[in-house]
């Protein structure tokens, strides 16, 4: 399975980086930009490596990340 897009809602994200930690393929990384709370939200580093396991969606405490399947 391949991901078409990973949507990160930067206004819901609290920058806890649990999604980056649970990702088995290291698809996500911390961005250099900050959101309106002053927190570093995640960014997609390598979309092609995503296997759509949706662990990031399962572990996100704030429903801020969504993987769209191709």
């Amino acid at each position: 399975m391949k991901a078409k897009e990973i949507i990160i809602d930067r206004n819901l994200c609290k920058g806890c980086s649990i999604c980056i930690h649970v990702c088995p393929k290291k698809t996500l990384g911390i961005s250099e930009d900050i959101n309106e709370y002053g927190l570093f939200y995640p960014k997609v580093e390598d979309l092609a490596s995503c296997i759509v396991c949706r662990l990031c969606e399962l572990y996100c405490p704030d429903f801020a990340i969504e993987v769209v399947q191709e």
């Binding site: 609290k14 806890c16 927190l39 429903f63």
Partner: peptide
């Protein structure tokens, strides 16, 4: 397949939550 968008549209009243960053309550 349950996605975050589906959960937000159907089961959550309002967001963002009042929990601290990294709190397990959201999970």
């Amino acid at each position: 397949m349950i996605t975050s968008r589906y959960i937000k549209e159907n089961y959550v009243r309002r967001l963002p939550s009042a929990f601290c960053p990294g709190c397990g309550d959201g999970q």
